[in-house]
Computed example of a mutant assay.
Amino acid sequence: MSASFSSAIQAAKEAAGAQHYPQGALYVVATPIGNLADITLRALHVLGLADGIACEDTRHTQQMLRAYGIDKPGSALLAVHQHNETEAAQAVIARLREGQRIAYVSDAGTPGVSDPGARLVAQVRAQGLTVIPLPGASSVVTAVSAAGLVDAGESHSGFLFRGFLSSKATERQHQIAALATQPHAVVLLEAPHRMEALAQALAVLGERKLTVGRELTKQFEEIATVEAAGFAAWLAQDANRLRGEFALVIHPAVTQEATQDDRVLHLLLEQLPLKSAVKLAADITGEPRNALYERALLLKRGASAED
Score class of each variant (00 low, 15 high):
A94S: 10
I102M: 01
P116L: 08
V80K: 11
A88D: 06
R101E: 03
R97S: 09
A103W: 02
Q82K: 15
V113H: 05
A88K: 06
A79L: 11
H81Y: 12
D107R: 02
Q90S: 13
A89E: 12
H83P: 06
Q100D: 07
P116K: 10
A91N: 15
G109Q: 02
R95D: 07
T110F: 13
H81I: 00
G74A: 12
R97K: 15
A79V: 09
A79H: 13
E98R: 11
A88G: 09
H81N: 05
A91M: 10
L96I: 01
D107W: 01
V113I: 15
L78T: 10
P111L: 06
I102H: 03
S106I: 00
E98D: 15
A94C: 06
L77V: 03
T110D: 00
E85H: 06
V105G: 04
E87K: 14
Y104T: 10
L77P: 12
V113K: 06
A108C: 08
T86Q: 14
A103K: 02
P116A: 08
A91V: 05
A76Y: 01
L96W: 04
T86P: 02
G112P: 10
I102L: 07
D107L: 00
L78N: 07
G99P: 03
H83T: 08
T86H: 14
G99I: 07
P111F: 13
E87P: 03
D107Q: 05
L77D: 08
A76C: 03
G109I: 00
A88L: 07
G109S: 09
D107M: 06
E87S: 13
Q100A: 04
R97M: 08
V113F: 09
P111M: 13
G74I: 00
G112R: 11
A79Y: 04
L78Y: 03
G109A: 07
T110L: 14
S106L: 00
V113M: 14
G109K: 06
S114N: 15
G74D: 15
G112M: 12
V113N: 04
S106P: 05
D115C: 14
D107E: 00
E85W: 08
A88I: 05
Q100M: 15
R95L: 01
S114P: 11
V113P: 02
S114Q: 06
G99D: 03
V80Y: 10
L77H: 12
